[in-house]
Design a protein around this nucleic acid. Structure first.
Length: 497
RNA sequence: CGGGGUGUAGCGCAGUCUGGUAGCGCACCUGCUUUGGGAGCAGGGGGCCGUCAGUUCGAAUCUGACCACCCCGACCA
């Protein structure tokens, strides 16, 4: 039987072609007519919806509330915080007119162009992030210590005109959440920053089954306008690092830039302390790259839009015997909160359905045919491999739940083992330069360099300082193998997306 | 913005050198037969050949300009 043109490039052959194939065959995205923009198709958006659900619940559990700030920001706002404007100016989309007018060419074809009479006095920036407009508003809302803290999150789209885009990992427009909090004290803001980092790590590991390293960014990699940036870093199957979420301690930088002060309990005036934190649809890319294989998408049950697909086996003419049972089981699974799809299309053969749902990463498939009816069981197959096996109708809901739990755990453990296997230490710069090329992964370095050293390493190796892990062994007395200077702190270096 | 590549049916491509009625595979529609891992046969529908301007009796094909997208770099969640 000939393979259809639904084949997927293998990871060994070409990792980035594999990634694009997995996304196309998984029916997650489609190209939009605008460069760098993608349509999130239902199966792709469904993954994001599940991720949203986990975070939104936790944000609310920790006292945050959702709000929504506008897409458009007055251009002048961007320039109020010096580092911030440096970081984002290069990638901002602008709105300069508010009206079109129609024109006709010689052939009489109608076209449209900006109406020069409608040019805006001050262009509007399409938000690349919302710190500026939010701090403008916070200035109006904060008077005294009694107005603090403000713990607001927003789910939104942002636009960054990137030169190079990759599906999910970097697109011109993307979806995310951005939390923006305002506090009376530095300690409280720092605590908030770290609390949100913990939530990011917990969801990444327990829900997305993506192991992450919590860490602090170097000055070079810090968010534009932040005092400290914390990150969760994941490792993809090719050994590259992916920054999967960031939490920033903004100090009083934005409060000063937007002149946001409050009256303290002691009746003095002080600038407000701030944090911001975000995760984006990039997490969907992290899930895809962490778990998928050469047969296509593999999704952890917790984030899979469809967790179980149920389908009748045998020719449609015998389905009358099995469909009532399938519907009954589907109803039972749904009632238990399991996301089920019954695939009863009679114009697609069973074999074709198997491949389709495997390409789409559905964790568990159940087939029921006349033979299974006689034996009182469904025929099951895990997306993650192994032979088909029977699951008795009696107690099937519990059995399926147990299967999904097992799959979830296995995926996390597999990913963690993969990361451990690709985490290295080196004794010299020469060894590092050679190995980072041939053996991508996380390189644990007792780092002793400064900004300039960091940049030099990057220029030579294309590897960057991903983070200083929060969990640190002492490195007293060690010498940094990359700079020859005394080690100050353990750092992870890697190639990164 | 540099270097490379590609624009022909929904998708993947041939045809372009050497100008002469628009092709193939998959997908789609109809019918029959099939059906526990990608069905077979027969019939059928679908095109401004990226855009504009040239050359020519005649252009997917030759010439020029432009546009778009993809890959590889520099920038980045």
């Amino acid at each position: 039987m000939a393979q259809q043109d639904s084949s997927i490039t293998t990871r060994a052959e070409n990792y980035s072609a594999w990634y694009n194939d997995v996304i196309a065959q998984g029916d997650l995205l489609d190209d939009a007519p605008v460069r760098g923009c993608k349509v999130l198709k239902p199966h792709g958006f469904g993954i994001w919806e599940n991720i949203q659900k986990f975070f939104d619940q936790r944000f609310k559990d920790t006292g945050h509330v959702n709000a929504y700030f506008p897409l458009f920001i007055p251009m002048s706002f961007l320039s109020k915080e010096a580092a911030h404007v440096e970081g984002f100016a290069m990638e901002c989309a602008l709105v300069t007119h508010h009206r079109l007018r129609t024109t006709k060419d010689e052939a009489g074809n109608v076209a449209v162009e900006p109406d020069p009479a409608s040019q805006l006095e001050e262009p509007l920036v399409v938000r690349p992030t919302s710190e500026t407009i939010i701090w403008h508003m916070y200035g109006r809302w904060i008077d005294s210590w009694r107005d603090l803290p403000i713990l607001i999150n927003q789910w939104a789209n942002v636009v960054r005109w990137e030169m190079r885009t990759r599906p999910f990992l970097r697109t011109a427009e993307f979806l995310w959440q951005e939390g923006h909090t305002a506090h009376a004290t530095e300690a409280e803001a720092v605590e908030e920053t770290l609390k949100m980092l913990d939530i990011y790590a917990e969801v990444a590991e327990t829900k997305l089954a993506v192991p992450v390293v919590k860490g602090r960014k170097s000055a070079r990699e810090r968010f534009a306008g932040a005092v400290e940036t914390y990150t969760i870093e994941a490792m993809m199957q090719n050994g590259w690092a992916l920054q999967a979420g960031t939490s920033h301690f903004l100090g009083q930088n934005f409060a000063k830039a937007f002149d946001v002060t409050f009256q303290t309990k002691e009746e003095t005036r002080d600038y407000v302390w701030a944090t911001s934190w975000g995760v984006s649809t990039r997490l969907v890319g992290a899930v895809i790259m962490t778990h998928s294989d050469d047969d296509g998408l593999v999704l952890p049950p917790e984030v899979a839009p469809i967790q179980v697909v149920l389908l009748p086996a045998g020719p449609p003419k015998v389905w009358g015997q099995v469909m009532p049972k399938i519907d009954e089981i589907a109803a039972g699974l749904k009632a238990a909160g399991i996301r089920v799809k019954v695939d009863d299309r009679d114009n697609v053969r069973s074999g074709a359905k198997f491949f389709e749902w495997e390409r789409k990463g559905v964790p568990l498939r159940l087939e029921i045919g006349p033979r299974d009816m006689e034996q009182g069981q469904a025929f099951a197959k895990r997306r993650t491999g192994g032979d088909k096996f029977g699951i008795a109708f009696d107690g099937i809901v519990e059995a399926v739940q147990a299967e999904l739990t097992t799959i979830q755990c296995e995926l996390f453990e597999r990913a963690r083992a993969q990361r451990e296997a690709c985490t290295y230490r080196v004794d010299s710069r020469a060894e590092f330069v050679e190995k980072i090329e041939t053996q991508p992964g996380f390189y644990l370095i007792p780092w002793g360099g400064d900004d300039a050293d960091e940049e030099a390493v990057r220029d030579e190796t294309r590897a960057t300082l991903r983070c200083f892990p929060m969990e640190q062994e002492p490195c007293d007395g060690l010498t940094c193998p990359l700079t020859g200077k005394p080690a100050q702190e353990w750092a992870i270096f890697a190639r990164a997306y």
